[in-house]
Design a protein around this nucleic acid. Structure first.
Length: 271
DNA sequence: CTAGGGGTAAAT
DNA sequence: ATTTACCCCTAG
């Protein structure tokens, strides 16, 4: 029955996410037909997309390893009171769906409690997901903006305080013996922009047309996702990944600030 | 077609 | 044993 198992590649995952960004959750067929993603997802079916999304969403929350223990909740809470539900949602948790929970979008940062010397890389996709879901449900059409942030973040790197500059392979205690080769020459040399410059880019994006932004964003998300996945996979020293994560957080910070503060009744652009 | 409840099976 | 990918079925 099960097909020979075909692990989803980062590109496919990215395409899926990008597709969701572009078309919204649930538009599997649409995403599949989009020439932008069909190139990568041509092997998958709409059901595959749905299932993958399900796995992705459900696991990105902590519900991991659980899926079959939910039909036993209810009761207990003796606070029934036929009160009029403000949202009349299901008896389950308030607004479940694909909402990525109320995870602290930027709780830590430099103070990341590195309980273990292992992975602590903040996933970019979680950030994206939260932003998308939140903004989509409430405001409406800012998904392109959010996605565009990623692009900016990917190409330019926000200078993360020159605290650390030099550190070339030395932390031997960081990783176990697993020098999985694949040590690319670090072609990194992306411009390191300053905050103001980034701000400028943001402004540019804001004035960008929705379609333009969407196109760029979709591609950017895919690329960013792929890059992150790659870095994470080979993340030993993960210099780039770390920087990326930090940049992402910084960017999220700036993004939220922009969206919350400057919430002028403009940019209501929609595709 | 989509959502979502199950299930099988293959990797880890 | 857990995760993960796919499949199947049913109700909208």
């Amino acid at each position: 029955m099960g097909a020979p198992k075909q692990k989803w590649t980062s590109e496919e995952e990215a395409a899926l996410k990008a597709g969701v960004v572009k078309h919204g959750v649930g538009k599997w067929r649409t995403i599949l037909k989009d020439p932008e993603f069909s190139g990568v997802l041509y092997l998958r079916s709409n059901v595959d997309l749905k299932d993958k999304w399900r796995n992705l969403s459900v696991m990105a929350n902590g519900w991991s390893s659980r899926e079959k223990s939910r039909l036993a909740i209810r009761r207990v809470h003796q606070a029934p009171k036929h009160d009029e539900n403000p949202f009349a949602v299901a008896p389950f948790t308030p607004s479940d769906e694909d909402i990525v929970d109320v995870k602290p979008i930027q709780a830590s940062r430099d103070v990341v409690p590195f309980s273990g010397p292992k992975r602590s890389i903040v996933r970019l996709d979680n950030l994206i997901m939260e932003a998308i879901t939140t903004l989509k449900e409430t405001g409406g059409s800012n998904k392109t903006t959010i996605a565009a942030f990623i692009e900016v973040k990917r190409r330019y790197r926000i200078a993360p305080t020159p605290a650390y500059s030099d550190r070339r392979r030395s932390s031997s205690l960081l990783m176990d013996g697993r020098q999985k080769a694949s040590l690319r020459g670090d072609k990194e040399e992306t411009n390191v922009l300053t905050k103001s410059q980034v701000d400028l880019e943001l402004a540019k994006i804001r004035s960008m047309s929705a379609q333009e932004a969407a196109a760029v964003a979709a591609r950017a998300v895919a690329e960013a996702e792929a890059a992150i996945a790659e870095a994470e996979e080979a993340a030993r020293e993960a210099e780039a990944a770390e920087a990326d994560a930090e940049a992402a957080q910084a960017f999220a910070d700036a993004a939220m600030k922009t969206l919350k503060g400057r919430n002028t009744p403009k940019m209501m652009i929609h595709a």
